[in-house]
Simulated assay, not measured.
Amino acid sequence: MYNFHLSDFITRFNNCVLGSKKILYLRYSGYILSILYIFKDRGYISKFTYSSRNMLVIINYINTSPIVSRIVLISKPSRRVYKKVKDLTIRSFYNEFYSTNIGILDTNSAINHKTCGECLFKVYTNV
């Protein structure tokens, strides 16, 4: 049994990308579900389904390479990293995700809502 769902999700996602797998199986978590909705909007995954216990994620590929090259965990249970809105910048090769008072947001959404919080992870892309 694991307690840190985010770390498990990132590890499984990175392993699927490194192994060129298209399908990712996860345990259900509402926290991860909110991240998957953003991933779907950004085009990192093509679709996902979930039930009360499990989630199935289809990773998006262009030809034979995945759109996401890797995900790097920033905040951990032993070390939390927080950012202010004035410290946010939009980068072309990665996107950061934040836990805010209005939910989980990526960098673009956090700048548009003028809110920020705990920096969870970075998603590096190949596109």
Rank of each mutant, 00 (worst) to 15 (best):
L24N: 04
Y50K: 13
M1R: 08
K114A: 13
N14Q: 13
A110F: 01
S20Y: 15
Y61V: 02
G117Q: 06
T11K: 06
I111D: 02
D106L: 05
R91W: 05
F93D: 14
C119N: 11
H113L: 14
R42V: 04
L36Q: 03
K114V: 09
V57S: 03
S52M: 10
G103W: 11
N14A: 08
N95H: 05
F9K: 01
T11Y: 05
S20H: 15
K21E: 13
I71P: 00
S65I: 11
S52E: 11
F13A: 02
N54M: 03
S109M: 14
V127E: 09
N14K: 06
N54F: 13
I67Q: 04
I23V: 09
L88W: 10
H113S: 12
L88E: 06
T100N: 05
I10K: 00
L26E: 12
Y124M: 08
S75Y: 04
D41G: 03
E118C: 10
T115V: 13
N15I: 02
L56K: 15
F39G: 01
T64N: 12
I111W: 03
H5V: 08
I58Y: 08
N108C: 07
I10G: 01
K84T: 15
T64I: 08
I90C: 06
I45T: 03
T49H: 08
I90W: 06
F39C: 15
S78R: 05
D106A: 06
I45R: 02
I67F: 04
K83A: 11
T107H: 01
N54L: 03
N112T: 10
I10P: 02
P66D: 09
L105R: 00
I32Y: 01
V57W: 11
I35L: 15
N54P: 00
N60V: 00
G117F: 05
L36A: 12
T11Q: 08
I111R: 03
I38W: 04
V85R: 03
T125M: 04
N3G: 13
V68G: 02
I58L: 10
R70H: 13
L26C: 09
V17G: 02
K114E: 13
I10M: 07
S65W: 03
Y37V: 06
S65E: 14
R42Y: 07
S34T: 07
V123A: 08
S20F: 15
I35Y: 02
L120K: 00
L120N: 00
I58V: 07
I59C: 05
D41I: 05
Y61W: 05
M55V: 10
Y94C: 07
K40N: 13
S92D: 11
S69D: 12
R53E: 14
S92C: 04
H5E: 15
L73Y: 03
F13Y: 15
V127I: 10
E118G: 01
S99D: 05
Y94H: 11
L33V: 06
N3E: 12
V57K: 01
F4Q: 12
I104W: 03
P66N: 05
